[in-house]
């Protein structure tokens, strides 16, 4: 029996497998870059080009110049929508998760079940009622209609609750109480710092979800308020599709996500709770 897998390091087979997985993961991104940097005719030639060309700047310029697409505005819109939703979801989920995990109040269990139940309703099922609701309150068409419904997340609350109940010992909260902190103060000074790794993960997931959301914004938003995914769909409209143009747009639509991933990824540091209490 091998007991020292961790100490002896990975086997050559493991390295080969991992290398393959990495190449397979990178391939689509690479070909996105290849196609975005070529003329449309080059892309359709056989065999297809395997190396990046020199048309990247021109293609990107054409994406931003297209007045039907409004790509620059779409980028800003999406950044705004996704950022607001991310901050709101992380904050409300941390608050509610802390309450569900650590505070005793009447109806706690029933409310949690309700929160979890909201996760079971498929998005598609909510589209029509949501559209009617947004029209009713006069928000249909604008950015508010794709932001407001996503400020709170059942999954986020549940996720934070699970993390808080295992990562924050009761004694830590009691110690803060004895030190004279109010519940709000305990949340800001003790709980939120402890939830940071989970908040980073949740923030990342939420931002990606909002950034990539297509169906609801496509239905709800009017011509003058596109998000990135909606704008991309307009790039490929018409009688013939300029693949180089679409790929240049997709590249521009993906880069911000990569940047966000790098920024948030740094926050996901394990072991932040280490040393506070001895278990």
């Amino acid at each position: 029996m091998r007991t020292s897998t961790r100490a002896s390091g990975a086997s050559p087979l493991m390295y080969v497998t991992l290398t393959l997985v990495v190449l397979l993961s990178i391939a689509p991104l690479y070909f996105m870059l290849v196609m975005a940097s070529r003329a449309n005719s080059e892309i359709l030639s056989v065999p297809p080009p395997l190396l990046p060309g020199d048309q990247l700047a021109g293609n990107i310029e054409r994406v931003f110049a297209n007045e039907d697409v409004q790509f620059g505005r779409a980028l800003l819109n999406t950044l705004l929508v996704a950022s607001v939703a991310t901050v709101a979801v992380v904050l409300t989920s941390a608050l509610a998760g802390f309450a569900f995990a650590k505070l005793r109040f009447r109806g706690r269990h029933g409310l949690l079940v309700f929160v979890v139940a909201t996760m079971m309703v498929p998005v598609q099922l909510g589209l029509i009622p949501l559209y009617m609701l947004m029209t009713e309150v006069g928000l249909a068409g604008g950015l508010a209609s794709v932001t407001l419904p996503f400020l709170v997340s059942g999954f986020g609350v549940f996720f934070m609750r699970q993390y808080a109940s295992q990562a924050i010992p009761d004694e830590l909260i009691e110690a803060a109480r004895v030190d004279g902190a109010s519940t709000v103060r305990i949340f800001w000074s003790v709980v939120l710092p402890a939830l940071r790794p989970a908040a980073a993960v949740l923030g990342l997931l939420t931002f990606m979800e909002r950034w990539n959301d297509f169906l609801w914004p496509y239905i709800s938003l009017d011509f003058n308020h596109p998000t990135v995914q909606v704008a991309l769909s307009r790039l490929s409209g018409g009688y013939y599709t300029d693949q180089a143009l679409v790929m240049a747009g997709t590249l521009m639509g993906t880069l911000p996500l990569v940047v966000v991933f790098i920024l948030f990824g740094r926050q996901i540091v394990g072991g932040i709770m280490e040393g506070g209490v001895k278990s």
Partner: peptide
Amino acid sequence: DIAMVFQNYALYPH
């Protein structure tokens, strides 16, 4: 106006 020392110390880790 009391102060408490906990069994597992309950120090604020951050």
